[in-house]
Design a protein around this nucleic acid. Structure first.
Length: 883
RNA sequence: GGGCGGGUAGCUCAGUUGGGAGAGCACCGGCCUUACAAGCCGGGGGUCACAGGUUCGAUCCCUGUUCCGCCUACCA
């Protein structure tokens, strides 16, 4: 066979072709009717607003590596794709579009607006899937799902109604986080706190019946308009007996009482706390304890409402300014302090959130969290790396009720209906025709939609068909592993655990692999505003998808931030090229080859052949071990080192002598070459699907695609430690001669003579048998080997274990350089000898260390001393020659 | 306030039953050797943050200090 390859690998010309080939042949498709052990993953559904960023690329590359690996191992493998409707994010995108068109959602009306979002989704929501295809992700696209699909919406309703019926979902007036720009409630997790430079205002509240005042401190003076009490600590001597005394609220003149509550910190400020139950979470709690009235002073857009008296209509920040001025002019402002404190912002639009009282829906999380904690504690679900378990427990054990209603239009509308006649609320799976109480048909559905994460929490079973009892669900649930970043451990992983256990009665996944987050070379979070993003699509274009994927895998060490720099990707682009050229070499030398990639069992193989086969076997073990433990970097590095440093650097070079002759050995070498190359490609395939398929298709292989070929497996019987040891010595000899050549600046083209002096006659035959390797790779013209080799006066020399390497250099010897070289070597040895002799002369060490350690060190010391003696003698002759 | 992770070569990072410190990039010297200059051969470079402790022996285990990063929390 003859195959011509270009000198360089051109990824752009091959990648699309194989994506198409794999899709057309349905290799990505999982067949739930097929027998066999299953392996399943659900993708963390990307937002439909999203475009592939480096985090997606990383997350999905790891999942694809696992998926392709397991598929090649013969598992019935499903990687479930899908996208998330991303309520607030998507609504914001479409609202921005409307704004640019000079209109808004209120003008459009709810129905038209939602239609508009669907239209946007149909046109633009598929971008990320196209990009995932380009990345080579072997997702079963035939099963693509969307959180607002009919089936998934049905699952959402089923879960909502069940939880409601069980009393685990409730509705009520509570203080929630309110975004005045998005006009919606947010869950605690959706608020991001930032240290902000603010002020602490000290304000005088006058007593009603006495001529004295009490000073309180606040960072948000405008909220005082909603104050309904001032609280002091019951233990506080300064305020003893003041309970029930009335104060005059500044600005409004309302009367409010002094109350006592243990929450108040005596040491903070004056020890008196203004209580605004409608606008502060702690005050809300205090208010409930003391039955204080709630006075809401704001509108949903953050402006002041009718309860703010003269400040009605002002924005909250405007109001603050005005109010402070008025306090100042009335001599009620004591002073203003600078204060750094953290302020909550909306995670979608960065607006400062307001604690706000309103009617919202909540999930009672405690009863759901308990089994979810237990499942991780008893190992039913294992979190990798383990230290994340602590974080998970910590949060789950202090979990608070989950606010699930959002005042937006894009999402799953809450399945509750209000009767216009009698006011009864009906929560139901199917849209009711009439009020079950009074029979009126005047029903209006709750306008709120559910938090996007509510539907995401059902993802592992809703995508597989639940609430129907499908074959798919039965086959692939629980899933094998969930692969995600730690940033959504609470948002998503914890909630899937709770919902999975509640509705499936079983954990949603056996393993949770939590990977690091990708940052830029300085460790900064990548963001468009900072301009430090590495665009994976650019990288795929310039370096190839395989190079990008391999880089990401090589970086995937557990539990740390990943600082990604572009030049790293270039290194792995070079690796692709190396694979390409090694394949080119193999293919160029298969012209007269008539075999396949299968190893010819009857062949009489050379030491080099046996060596590479043993090393291949070792590489299989290392790659498998790495993947098994989610140590992607170790797996990738094991494959990398094998292919580059062993197969290319040594075996290909060693194979040349037999390959370039036309003896009987040639066919054997060809067989080993093509076998090892083919196995290496299979080993690399999960990491680098494109280049491996491209080359594999040109080999005399069996099967239609490398992605359906078996993954190479380690077998103990294939180990050949004797050959490995022999070849290690041969390679040491070659390296020594090369070192002499390099250090003494000898022309690499110059053929040398070599004398090998042995201490032990047993090694002689082995070296003689392998001498052609030494002659080829070290460029040796003539050699002599034996126990009684006479060293010429003019020669360079090296000492290995039990072997002296002597290179006669009559006429071309540079004595000074040889002297430097030997002195350098001696220095190193001496250092080691000192350390070792100290250790070995330590009585405690001799008495207490295990015998095998002592034995090893003793031998090492002897060998080093011997080497030292020989090198010293050699140095002496060199020095004499110089004189 | 609580918790977690980290500090190893110039840079980015690996390194578990505690026993001779590694890789890639960068650097220096030499090579277009018929697979590959995106390559080949050779080389230099580290008190493993600091201080104690356990141990015959610590990059690794324990304690403390310090610096960096992240998560979490109701100090107005």
């Amino acid at each position: 066979m003859t195959v011509e390859l270009d000198k360089k690998y051109h990824p752009e010309s091959v990648e699309e072709r194989w994506t198409q080939f794999w899709t057309e042949n349905r290799f990505y498709h999982a067949d739930e009717t097929r027998a066999g052990e299953t392996f399943s993953i659900v993708i963390p559904p990307p937002n439909i607003t999203g475009s592939l960023h480096i985090g997606h690329a990383f997350n999905n590359t790891l999942q694809d590596i696992l998926t392709r690996w397991k598929r090649m191992l013969g598992f019935n493998t499903l990687w479930q794709p899908g996208t998330d409707h991303a309520g607030i994010a998507t609504q914001n995108v479409v609202e921005r579009q409307l704004h640019a068109e000079g209109t808004n959602r209120d003008t459009l009306g709810r129905e038209a607006f939602v239609q508009r979002v669907w239209k946007w989704r149909d046109e633009s929501g598929g971008t990320i899937n196209t990009q995932l295809r380009k990345l080579g992700c072997s997702l079963d696209w035939e099963r693509d799902r969307f959180t607002m699909d009919e089936g998934l919406s049905k699952a959402v309703r089923e879960v909502f109604v069940s939880l409601y019926e069980e009393g685990l979902i409730y509705k009520g007036d509570y203080l929630i986080n309110w975004c005045p720009r998005c006009h919606t409630a947010l869950s605690d997790l959706e608020v991001e706190y930032q240290e902000t430079q603010g002020h602490l205002y000290h304000i005088k509240y006058l007593f009603k019946d006495e001529d004295r005042s009490l000073t309180i401190a606040t960072t948000r003076p405008e909220t005082l308009l909603g104050d309904t009490a001032v609280a002091v600590n019951p233990e506080d001597e300064r305020y003893r007996g003041l309970k029930g005394t009335l104060l005059i609220l500044p600005a409004l003149g309302r009367e409010i009482p002094i109350i006592e509550d243990g929450y108040v910190d005596v040491s903070f400020g004056s020890g008196a706390l203004k209580v605004t139950p409608a606008h502060d979470p702690n005050d809300f709690e205090i208010g409930r304890r003391h039955n204080l009235p709630l006075i809401n002073v704001m509108n949903i857009d953050g402006t002041m409402n009718e309860n703010a008296g003269p400040y009605q209509g002002l924005d909250r920040m405007e109001c603050r300014k005005k109010l402070v001025e008025e306090l100042k002019s009335n001599d009620l402002l004591v002073n203003i302090e600078n204060l750094n404190h953290s302020v909550g912002h909306c995670y979608r639009c960065r607006t400062v959130i307001e604690p706000y009282v309103s009617k919202q829906w909540f999930v009672k999380t405690k009863p759901l969290a308990e089994p979810a904690v237990e499942a991780v504690r008893n190992g039913t679900t294992r979190i990798v790396p383990k230290f994340w378990e602590n974080t998970y427990f910590e949060w789950m054990e202090n979990i608070r009720d989950w606010c699930i209603s959002r005042q937006i239009w894009w999402g799953h509308q809450i399945p509750a209906w209000h009767c216009g006649k009698c006011g009864t609320m009906t929560v139901a799976r199917e849209t009711p025709k009439s009020c079950p109480d009074c029979g009126s048909e005047e029903l209006e559905q709750e306008s709120d939609v559910l938090d996007t994460w509510f539907s995401s929490a059902l993802w592992p079973f809703s995508t597989l068909g639940w609430p129907e009892k499908t074959k798919t669900l039965e086959k692939y649930y629980p899933t094998s592993v969930l692969c995600t970043g730690f940033d959504i451990l609470f948002f998503w992983v914890a909630r899937m655990m709770m919902m999975g256990l509640k509705f499936m009665g079983e954990v949603p996944f056996r393993h949770v692999y939590i990977h690091a987050l990708i940052r830029d070379a300085e460790g900064q979070k990548m963001s468009k505003t900072k301009g430090n993003v590495i665009d994976p699509l650019d990288m795929m274009k310039t370096c190839g998808t395989d190079a990008l994927r391999f880089t990401l895998a090589a970086f995937a060490a557990q539990g740390r931030d990943i600082k990604l720099a572009e030049d790293r990707i270039e290194g792995y682009r070079n690796f692709c090229n190396k694979i390409w050229n090694a394949s080119r070499f193999v293919l160029m030398n298969l012209e007269d080859y008539r075999g396949t990639c299968k190893l010819d069992q009857s062949a009489d193989r050379s030491p080099a052949d046996r060596w590479i086969l043993s090393r291949l076997n070792n590489a299989c073990r290392e790659v498998h071990k790495g993947l098994e433990a989610y140590n992607f970097n170790e797996a990738a590095m094991a494959a990398y080192k094998f292919v580059w440093n062993e197969f290319c650097d040594w075996y290909i070079e060693l194979s040349k002598s037999s390959l370039f002759q036309s003896g009987s050995q040639k066919q054997v070498t060809q067989n080993v070459l093509v076998h090892v190359l083919e196995a290496s490609l299979r080993l690399l395939h999960p990491f680098m699907p494109f280049i491996t398929e491209e080359i594999w298709q040109k080999l005399p292989k069996e099967g239609s695609s490398i992605m359906m070929a078996p993954f190479p497996i380690y077998e103990e019987a294939k180990e050949d430690p004797k050959t490995e040891k022999d070849l290690a010595l041969v390679m040491d000899i070659i390296t020594s001669v090369r070192n002499i050549r390099g250090e003494m600046n000898l022309n690499p083209g110059l053929a040398l003579n070599l004398l090998i002096k042995l201490e032990d006659p047993e090694t002689g035959p082995m070296i003689t048998k392998n001498i052609k390797y030494i002659m080829e790779l070290a460029r040796v013209r003539e050699f002599d080997i034996g126990l009684s080799i006479e060293k010429p006066k003019v020669a360079a020399s090296s000492v290995l274990n039990g072997i002296d390497i002597i290179v006669p250099l009559e006429g071309i010897m540079n004595f000074r350089e040889e002297k430097n070289r030997i002195e350098k070597e001696l220095k190193k040895i001496e250092k080691d000898i000192i350390v070792l002799s100290k250790k070995l002369s330590n009585q405690n060490f001799i008495e207490k260390a295990p015998p095998e350690v002592i034995e090893k060190d003793t031998q090492r010391q002897q060998a080093l001393c011997q080497k030292q003696t020989k090198l010293k003698a050699h140095l002496k002759t060199i020095e004499q020659a110089i004189r």
